[in-house]
């Protein structure tokens, strides 16, 4: 009975996992077979005629190395800035006293229901006035601070012992000094979590870069890939190489820092 149930359970688990991974496996396999080979993928895999030609074409003919660098640079920049800015604010909302603090925080959290698209049109016009449309800065600017990030840091910072901060104040340390040498190290786990969220979010973002970037030399990978589809829709294998190039870096990053990522979802999801 127990054995039968275990078999059934693991059968279901393996079947579900296979179905889940199948599209990703197909993407990788299709990117490695010669042009036109993806329609009979298994035959091509069995005959062992694998090739890296499509990746080669991406980097030589289509100049996607620049696009890859754009994506990486922009995601890293947004992450660095926003983690720092959100850490400052999240800590202050948890541990420093100032007039109207809790009301302000509740007000901020209420804005989490505002979808990003709501302010997108005027934001575009604003950046146009500032001459930032079609620049890297235009992509970075909306990500400089986020209510979600402040919320995440604040919930975590609540657990910092007040006595630790008071002791440092008695020793004459300034607030910035306390933040840099005591608070930041304590916040490290949640900042790593926030950094992964932000990096993946920026890397995967599509609508805003699509709106704000018009010059294909500035494109990020998702925008370039959607654009590439227009001319190369028949080149299945080439498109799959592009998809792998777009997906692989974030999958590797996730695999390396999985623990922090999963914990972050639970923290943000259950402390409502």
């Amino acid at each position: 009975m127990r054995l039968a149930r275990s078999l059934l359970l693991h059968g279901a688990l393996v079947a579900a996992a296979t179905l889940t991974l199948l599209p990703l496996a197909w993407m990788v396999a299709a990117s490695l077979v010669p042009a036109g080979g993806s329609s009979d993928l298994l035959a091509n895999l069995r005959s062992g005629s694998l090739t890296l030609a499509h990746y080669d074409a991406l980097f030589t003919r289509l100049d996607l190395a620049r696009t890859l660098a754009n994506s990486a640079g922009l995601a890293a920049t947004v992450t660095a800035i926003s983690v720092f800015v959100n850490a400052l604010a999240g800590y202050a909302f948890a541990k420093l006293r100032f007039a109207g603090r809790d009301r302000l925080f509740r007000g901020l959290v209420a804005t989490l229901v505002i979808p990003g698209q709501l302010g997108m049109l005027p934001l575009f016009l604003l950046l146009k006035q500032l001459g930032l449309v079609n620049t890297y800065a235009g992509v970075v600017i909306p990500g400089v601070a986020s209510v979600f990030g402040i919320f995440l840091v604040r919930q975590y910072a609540l657990s910092i012992p007040q006595s630790l901060l008071d002791a440092a104040r008695i020793d004459g340390a300034g607030e910035l000094r306390i933040f840099a040498s005591i608070v930041l190290p304590l916040l490290r786990p949640i900042l790593v979590t926030l950094a992964i969220f932000t990096f993946l979010g920026t890397w995967n973002d599509f609508l805003w870069p699509l709106v704000v970037l018009t010059d294909d030399r500035l494109y990020t990978l998702p925008v370039a890939l959607a654009n590439l589809l227009g001319e190369h829709v028949q080149d299945v294998e080439l498109m799959m190489a592009g998809a792998v190039l777009t997906v692989a870096p974030v999958v590797v990053l996730f695999a390396a820092l999985q623990r922090y990522y999963m914990q972050g979802i639970v923290t943000s999801g259950l402390r409502e």
Partner: peptide
């Protein structure tokens, strides 16, 4: 964690 645009292409 995968990129939606890439996955939509797939």
């Amino acid at each position: 964690v995968t990129t939606l645009v890439a996955i939509a292409v797939v």
